[in-house]
């Protein structure tokens, strides 16, 4: 569907305006949400719902205070909410999820002037805020496919606002999983030097947030968006390419110390980050060379933080740092204007 009209360039419009793109991103995220709910049950569903509602509420309050028309219908707050929920542990208390949603919209988007003005990915800002605020809750994990996951909530989910989540060791024992350690694959690799196999990742038999357990599903959903040209395929390709290359080099040098590239690709939030977060249109570069450099930077930073940093996972900070460099990358990689002299003016 394309149409032309009489006005200054550009003359041709693909017909995909912001709500259309955003709605398709939501469609692409739905299968991942469903998988997450299937794995973790009611708690995961409640978390996705609450975080998304918090984002919508923040957006609405913002419209009200600034006296502008409602921007809920552009779907961007929904995407922020779903993405944010997918990066949180399924047992995350709902009130903390709401805090994450509010801070994502307010600190990540509204303060900078709303959609399109945000220098950072709002969902990651929200996650960074709760990671700093509630470091214990955000690193508490529960086993996937527990027996009673549809019969009730994980005890921590319904923590009263502003209160400490209860200890869930007892609850985990009730699930009949004795060997459960509560460590994500990346943490297990970092502290115990045990790398999970690709098979464990593919079947979702690992302990993690939804974005970490369904790498293949995310890949498929991302491909759908790439094929429909709703995201720039070069960014995820650059991220995954640089991660593969760098971790392969490390793996070659010291196979005992550094895990294989497939582990690096499948673990953590890499897939979700590469396909759905790094590709955020407002916070990524637009020049061709800038895009490649941006993707590569995310990949390199992720590997560096995972290998040498104090944290187990680095995708979030890697993307935030790369977001900050996006305007600079664009500035340095401006394509030559048609007809201009080759040298710099």
């Amino acid at each position: 569907m394309s149409h032309t009209e009489l006005r200054a360039a550009p003359h041709q419009h693909s017909g995909n305006d912001v709500p259309v793109i955003m709605r398709n991103v939501v469609y692409a995220l739905l299968p991942i949400c469903v998988f997450s709910v299937w794995q973790y049950g009611l708690s995961a569903a409640a978390l996705i719902l609450v975080v998304t509602l918090a984002c919508l509420l923040a957006e609405r309050i913002n419209n009200f205070v600034s006296g502008t028309a409602s921007t809920l219908s552009d779907w961007s707050a929904v995407i922020t909410g779903i993405l944010l929920a997918l990066t949180l542990p399924p047992s995350f208390p709902l009130w903390m999820g709401a805090v994450a949603g509010l801070s994502a919209i307010w600190l990540g988007k509204s303060l900078f002037g709303g959609l399109g003005q945000n220098p950072f990915n709002p969902a990651l800002i929200g996650r960074a805020f709760v990671q700093a605020a509630f470091p214990t809750a955000i690193s508490t994990w529960v086993p996937a496919f527990s027996l009673n996951r549809f019969a009730g909530f994980i005890p921590t989910t319904l923590t009263a606002p502003f209160m400490l989540p209860p200890d869930i060791k007892h609850w985990i024992k009730l699930q009949g999983l004795d060997a459960f350690t509560g460590a994500t694959p990346l943490a297990r690799w970092k502290f115990e030097n045990v790398a999970a196999s690709a098979m464990e990742f593919l079947t979702g038999q690992v302990t993690a947030c939804a974005g970490e357990t369904s790498a293949i599903l995310i890949l498929l959903c991302g491909l759908y968006l790439a094929v429909r040209k709703f995201l720039d395929w070069r960014i995820p390709v650059a991220v995954m390419g640089s991660v593969t290359l760098l971790s392969w080099l490390f793996h070659l040098a010291q196979p005992a110390r550094y895990p294989s590239p497939s582990f690096m690709l499948l673990s953590g939030g890499l897939m979700l980050g590469a396909w759905f977060m790094a590709t955020d249109m407002a916070s990524s570069p637009i020049t061709p060379r800038g895009i490649w450099l941006y993707g590569a930077l995310i990949g390199i930073l992720t590997v560096m933080i995972r290998y040498f940093g104090g944290l187990t996972e680095g995708v979030m900070y890697a993307i935030l740092i790369a977001n900050a460099t996006a305007p600079l990358l664009d500035q340095f990689n401006q394509p030559r204007v048609l007809g201009a002299k080759g040298s710099k003016s």
């Binding site: 700093a132 605020a133 509630f134 502003f162 400490l164």
Partner: peptide, 16 residues
């Protein structure tokens, strides 16, 4: 103010 089960927001006592 909130009893012993209060969840502190660690970020608030840090520089950010």
């Amino acid at each position: 103010l909130f009893g012993e089960h209060f969840q502190p927001w660690v970020v608030m006592v840090l520089p950010p």
